[in-house]
Design a protein around this nucleic acid. Structure first.
Lengths: 338, 338
DNA sequence: CTGAAAGCGCTTACAG
DNA sequence: CTGAAAGCGCTTACAG
């Protein structure tokens, strides 16, 4: 099926040199006389030659591919992260191989195995909480990687870029507290976002506010629908609640929907705050107050660390924790008196 | 950096055979005696050997990778399509290389060039309308591909899977018409969705309804925000409008937001219909009436065609047009009398 | 500065 | 059924 393809040999032949000379000009090694360089470049242009990356990869051990492992890409957080990562990486000349795990450790392992056999140069993994289990595989084969960590514990000795999830939760709850809310409910992706919620509890505790366990709902699914169901249940049982803290925006969008369903205006009769700042948060109605994670900074940092490791050949473990920032929009207001 | 890796030679040595025998057992060629097969399999297991896909690709000309080219993945339509495609393809043993074009033809070309140099086996392209220009490159190098076509014209001689966009528009507008709407505005991704809108005009014309040009708004950007701005402008200028047809769901979500902003309840005082049926459509408030494109069927068909072409080595051009279906939810109702 | 040789890890005919 | 040889398209020392 494949049409004949022009190789380094064809170029060499046409330029009247050997293929290693062609290789030298391709790789810009300064050992070629200007004259023959010109000849070779002509031949390359005439023939439309481009090096076979497979062959090069086999010979050099460098494929210029890095793997990106994420739970999925229909979740906008990961979609946005992947796009940012791709942009950062491609400016460095790397192509990306995308792997989705769907949160399935078996699947993740299989995918990693295949990437390894394709001899990618390195990996960036967006931890879904189960990635930690596969780090052994990575270190075992000596594949450089950096972890865009979720808040769950990450392995020591790894290069990780993470957000300060505890602080994110703290900032969100502090905002509610400072607005004067005392009747707060929590809709959370539990246990995945435990740390965020702990931060929230800390902020509330500082104002002697405690959130009864019955006002904390874990979502069945990590989606808008999950947030909706959780909010419906908690708001129905506890109508006195004036504010809901969601552990991430997708859930908050569901809470928003539940509020509409229950006839509670936002922020007039219910305040909603969450964490993430995905694009949809600012486009919601009303736009969501949330604590922003700078995905783009995470992407740049991670890509930077990986590229440095690949270039230097040195592994430099360490944890970089990025600070989240409260973004006040229109889903929060002081509690109304009625 | 890379730790020592076990090769076919190591296996051969340990099993006391030559590497071509190992190759024979790996590729399940029925020429190996049960006895030596066992020995080799033992050696493979002991050493944890897995074939180097780069080397194999170079030797066979098959990389078992297929490229997926989409405009972006933050648009949920493409994200969902990519996930479906990946699932279909991986069951056939293919890994995917993802390319995002961001609608930039230059970028698209560069990416395709790189994929070609990586010797992927084939391609699936989700047309953003500009892909057509690159088909020459693909046919030139003889790379099998299938086009998940947008509605713009596609090259002849290609294998394409598309939706009947005209019918989609027709169904959407017919629904509004049958509900009794006569004052209709259009928010469209123009010219990308020209065909959908033509279908819509046809349905309306059948009831002698014409949509004045001033009631048709092209969006600046193909996003929620674009839909919002377009709807704000058209609804402000034409408050008598009772229904809006959007050319895709993302825009419709923006229209929904505009309706809220303008104090028009949906569907009480304004009906909204669109085309696509992305996940967010059913999760909107109210859930959107829309015309569904079965992305999953598109993904399966496309993957199926490509895989068949790869296996048979035969290119079979043709256009498969999938039928859309109206999904009535809660964003549409008869016009109110006031 | 250029060319002959060996090698990356696999597969594919082709003898024995 | 097994082994020796050549080749996929590149690169990397190493002579000249």
């Amino acid at each position: 099926m494949r049409v004949t393809v022009v190789t380094i040999k064809d170029v060499a032949h046409r330029a009247g040199v050997t293929k290693q000379t062609v290789s030298n000009v391709i790789n810009k090694r300064p050992v070629v006389s200007p004259d023959t360089r010109k000849r070779v470049e002509r031949a390359i242009a005439d023939l439309g030659y481009t090096p076979n990356l497979l062959a090069r990869g086999l010979a050099t051990g460098q494929t210029m591919m890095v793997g990106l492992v994420v739970p999925n890409i229909t979740n906008p957080f990961y979609a946005e992260l992947v796009e940012d990562l791709e942009r950062s990486l491609e400016t460095e000349g790397y192509s990306i191989a995308l792997c989705t795990t769907y949160g399935d450790p078996v699947r993740a392992r299989r995918q990693l195995e295949i990437l390894r056999r394709r001899y990618i140069d390195g990996l960036i993994l967006a931890d879904d909480g189960s990635i930690g289990r596969h780090v052994d595989l990575l270190t075992e084969v000596g594949l450089p990687f950096v972890l865009c960590a979720s808040e769950t514990e990450y392995p020591s000795g790894a290069t990780v870029v993470t957000f300060d999830h505890g602080r994110a939760g703290y900032l969100a709850a502090q905002h509610l507290r400072d607005l004067g809310h005392r009747e707060v409910a929590v809709v959370g992706d539990i246990p995945a976002h435990e740390v965020r919620l702990e931060g929230a509890h800390r902020a509330l505790a500082e104002a002697s506010i405690t959130v009864a366990p019955s006002r904390i709902r874990a979502t069945r699914v990590s989606s808008r629908l999950g947030g909706f169901e959780a909010a419906m249940s908690v708001l129905t049982e506890h109508p006195e609640v004036t504010a809901v803290m969601a552990s991430h925006d997708l859930l908050a969008l569901g809470v928003l929907q539940a509020a509409a369903e229950l006839g509670r205006t936002v922020p007039g009769s219910l305040s909603i705050v969450s964490v993430d700042d995905i694009a949809a948060a600012s486009q919601a109605n009303p736009p969501l107050t949330t604590v922003a994670f700078a995905k783009q900074r995470m992407a740049r940092k991670s890509a930077g660390f990986l590229v440095r490791a690949l270039k230097s050949g040195q592994h430099r473990p360490g944890v970089t924790s990025l600070s989240p920032e409260l973004v006040v929009r229109e889903s929060t207001a002081p509690p109304s008196r009625n």
